[in-house]
C-alpha cells in the first residue's frame, strides 16, 4: 500500500474505521467491488442483490459489516444465507455490531463504538456513483470502481472522526430514512446494471434455475 489513492465515500462511519484498521495492519482491501444477485423472479430478473462491504484480495475474503441493532439484521442474515447457497465457494464474514464493538474494545477505542454503530454512524454524504462496469460471475455494481487502500486521510474520508459522527448531530430517524433511500437507489442501480449483463453472464443461468418459484421480495429495503 504505497500508493495513496482517494478513499471511497463510505456508507457508514464504522466502515471507515474498519478500513483504517485494515490499513494499519497492511491488509489490502477494496470497498464494495462486487455485487452478487441473490433473488430472481420467474423471468430471471434480479430482484435482490448482495454487495459485501469489503473484499480482501490477498485473503480472498469478503467482509460485511452491519452495526444496526441485532433485531434489524434479520434481512441481512437472510440475504447472506442466500448468498452462501448460491455461491458456496465465496468466503464471506459478517461482522455484527457486537463484533465491531469487541474489535474497538480490543484496541482501546470503545468510546468510539457508540458513535460509530447504528444510525448514529450514518453521517457520510450520499455517494457519487460512476457508470456500471459489468463482468461475468461476480458483477460490478453500478456505484463502484474507486479502489481505496492508501494511507488514511481524514480530509477525504468524511465521518472518520468521532466528532463528525457524534450521535445526536442528526436525528436517528432522519439518518435511517436517508440510509434507506441510499440503499434503495443503490439497489435499483444494481438491478439495472445486472439486467444489462444478464444475457452475457453465464453463471446467471444456473443461478436462475436455483431461484425459488414465485418469489416476490421487494428490493431496496434497509439492511
Amino acid at each position: 500500500m504505497t500508493e495513496a489513492r482517494p478513499r471511497p465515500a463510505f456508507a457508514h462511519a464504522s466502515e471507515a474505521e474498519l478500513a483504517r484498521i485494515l490499513d494499519f495492519y497492511e491488509v489490502r482491501w477494496e470497498y464494495e467491488p462486487h455485487c452478487f444477485p441473490v433473488l430472481f423472479d420467474r423471468s430471471g430478473a434480479v430482484l435482490e442483490s448482495f454487495t459485501p462491504d469489503f473484499y480482501l484480495p490477498d485473503l480472498d475474503l469478503y467482509l460485511e459489516l452491519t452495526t444496526l441493532k441485532q433485531r434489524l439484521v434479520r434481512r441481512k442474515n437472510r440475504k447472506l444465507r442466500r448468498l452462501r447457497e448460491l455461491y458456496p465457494d465465496l468466503r464471506v464474514k459478517l461482522l455484527y455490531a457486537r463484533d465491531f464493538r469487541a474489535l474497538l474494545l480490543k484496541y482501546g477505542k470503545l468510546a468510539l463504538a457508540d458513535a460509530l454503530t447504528g444510525a448514529g454512524g450514518q453521517s457520510t454524504p450520499p455517494r457519487t456513483r460512476p457508470a456500471p462496469e459489468a463482468s461475468p460471475g461476480a458483477i460490478q455494481p453500478a456505484h463502484l470502481g474507486d479502489r481505496a487502500g492508501g494511507p488514511p486521510s481524514d480530509a477525504t474520508a468524511p465521518g472518520l472522526s468521532p466528532t463528525a459522527t457524534a450521535p445526536g448531530t442528526r436525528p436517528a430517524g432522519a439518518a435511517m430514512r436517508q440510509h434507506r433511500a441510499r440503499r434503495a437507489r443503490r439497489t435499483r442501480a444494481e438491478a439495472r446494471a445486472l439486467a444489462a449483463v444478464r444475457a452475457s453472464a453465464g453463471t446467471l443461468a444456473a443461478v436462475r434455475a436455483d431461484a425459488p418459484p414465485g418469489t416476490s421480495a421487494i428490493p431496496g429495503g434497509p439492511e
Binding site: 483504517r20 484498521i21 490499513d23 494499519f24 495492519y25 497492511e26 474497538l104 484496541y107 482501546g108 477505542k109 494511507p151 488514511p152
Partner: peptide, 14 residues
C-alpha cells in the same frame, strides 16, 4: 505496535 496505541505510537501503520 497496536492499532489505537498512544498518540506517539500510532503512526497510522503497524
Amino acid at each position: 505496535s497496536s492499532y489505537g496505541g498512544t498518540a506517539t505510537e500510532n503512526t497510522g501503520l503497524v
